[in-house]
Structures are given as structure tokens and as C-alpha cells.
Design a protein around this nucleic acid. Structure first.
Lengths: 150, 150
DNA sequence: GCGAAATTGGTAATCAGTCTCATTTTTTAG
DNA sequence: CTAAAAAATGAGACTGATTACCAATTTCGC
């Protein structure tokens, strides 16, 4: 694996944040520093580094692949609404993870992958607002019908 | 949600097998009974039923979505080579799953999703064959070099 | 039966991700 | 240091899965 400015930039960018970006998000950011970098290069390097274990690929549940430069032991919570991923690091999960690893090894299974799923605060609020709005509309429609039938 | 022949057919087909088919595979099969059914209808209904919990959706970014009509408690092993999914149902996993559910609830998390990852037997054999073949080629190249330098 | 609401088929469009290939960069061997 | 080999790049074409659109049809509550 040769050393290239592009690969370095991708890895640095990924390590500088803990936002689990998608390839195209990363591309967008990287273009500010390397205006001529291509999306293909970003994809190529991310896949390469992921297969070598330099970074992690998170692809469960969402529809776009995401990447993580943080190799320390931690877990991910994905918001089912906006698809963003945040980190979580608690002992109880680590213990369970250990148990899981043991159990699946006994079954003859190589590995497993999991994600927590939970609405992020932002989306929770957004959904509450939307619901209120929907109720408001429903109410005003009821009123219309009353006026009409009167 | 109205009753339609198409939706019934899709659900029946999905329940009749435990193969976790993709939408297009399902479409292919369904066309034998409903020749005029459209791929869009299959996708639409699968998504709808999944969002209502009538069926389950198994998605991995960068891969085709798969669907499962079996709502009984079981887990999935995905082959990282051919992407096929098989079922597994063992007590040790169920117990761990229970523990997980408890722990994440305490964290304030709604749900979680996991998949086991393991090469299926077919792919395991295929990869062994490929490796052998690669070695054979490497050997014959070595021999060529010897002949050449002699 | 009737009209509103839901659903359909067909097809166009989108979107993530991959592939190709001529050119450039990096590494290796002498 | 230099030349050849190997690896990587950028630009854009391409693919395959999924979604969007919309006129025509079907379903369902009354």
C-alpha cells in the first residue's frame, strides 16, 4: 500500500471527527483541501482501509455506507429518522459484547455486527412538531365540515 | 390498508419459504402467478408491510435488501461472500438477546439490530479451491522463471 | 351502486457505488 | 540517481437497486 496525499487526507479527515461520515460527505469536505480529488478515490481508499482494518465500515440498517476512523471500543446508535450515528461507550454493553463473541464462536460463527437504534433528540422534537401540526390540520378540517354542514 | 391480490400473493410467497429473498427475486417468482405484476408494486408492498411489522426487512448498506416473512424469534447469519442469509435459533443467543434488550432499555434506547457474519459452506469451499488454484499458478510461474534464467 | 381513497402497472428518474483507462505518482532494483 | 514496474489517481461512463410519477383501476365504507 503506497503512501499518497489523498489517502492521508481521507484518513486524517476521518480521524479528526467522530461523525461517521458517508463517502460522499467526506468527498465534499476533502475537496476544500484537495479540489481535484475524485469520488472514486474516496470510495476506493475507504474500502481498502476498511478491509485492512485501518478504519471501520458501518453499514447495517442505513442505506448508505458510513465509515469510522475511531478503532477504540465503542458502539453505535443510529437514528432511524435522519440516519445519523452517534457513539456510546458503556461497560454493560462491553460485557454483553464479550459474551456475544464467546457464544457465536461456540456456534462456529466468525463475527457479528450490531447497532442500537433510537431516535436522536433532534428528530424526536421534529416528529412531535409534525404530529402537532397534523392535529392542527385535522382540527381545522373538522371545523370546515361543521361550517359546511351548517 | 386495502386488500389486494398482489399484496396477498407477495405475503404468501414470502411466508411459504424461508429464503429471505430480495424484491427482484420475489418479483421473478410472482410473475409466474401474476404475470402483470410490476416490480414497483413488489417494492412498495414489501416496504409497507415491513413498516407495519407484518414482515421483516434485512438491510445492509451496499447490498440488496432482503425480506423475511417469518416473525418467530430467530437470528440471521449472513455470508460475506455470497450475501445469502440463513436462520439460526439457539437458546444461548435468545438469552443474550434478552439481556441486550434489558440493557439497552436502561440506556434509553428503543431497539437494536444485529446480524451474525460467517462464510457459508459453499463459499468456504469455493474460496479454498480458488486459493489452491492461485498457488498452482504461482508455482508454475516460479518454474518459468527458473527455466528462463537457466 | 357511488365516490373517495388506496393501489396498480409501466416507465422514467435517481442514487449509491463500481468500473475503466489513460495519466501520474510511488516504490523498487540496480 | 535512474529507469522500469507497480500502485494509485481523476474523470467520467456505467450499473443495478430502488424510488417517483401518474393515469388507469380497484377497493371499501356508506
Amino acid at each position: 500500500m503506497n503512501k499518497t496525499a489523498q489517502r492521508d487526507a481521507i484518513l486524517n479527515e476521518l480521524r479528526a471527527h467522530n461523525s461517521h461520515p458517508t463517502a460522499d460527505k467526506l468527498y465534499e469536505v476533502l475537496r476544500k483541501k484537495l479540489p481535484q480529488i475524485s469520488l472514486g478515490t474516496v470510495y476506493r481508499n475507504l474500502e481498502q482501509m476498511a478491509s485492512r482494518g485501518t478504519i471501520k465500515k458501518l453499514s447495517l440498517a442505513g442505506h448508505q455506507k458510513r465509515f469510522d476512523g475511531d478503532l477504540s471500543r465503542h458502539y453505535h446508535i443510529r437514528c432511524p429518522h435522519c440516519d445519523n450515528i452517534s457513539n456510546i461507550k458503556v461497560d454493560s454493553l462491553i460485557n454483553l459484547d464479550d459474551e456475544f463473541q464467546e457464544v457465536i464462536k461456540k456456534i462456529g460463527c466468525d463475527n457479528y455486527y450490531f447497532e442500537l437504534i433510537s431516535l436522536c433528540d433532534e428528530c424526536k422534537n421534529k416528529l412531535i412538531e409534525e404530529q402537532k401540526e397534523a392535529e392542527r390540520i385535522a382540527q381545522s378540517k373538522k371545523r370546515e365540515v361543521l361550517v359546511w354542514t351548517n
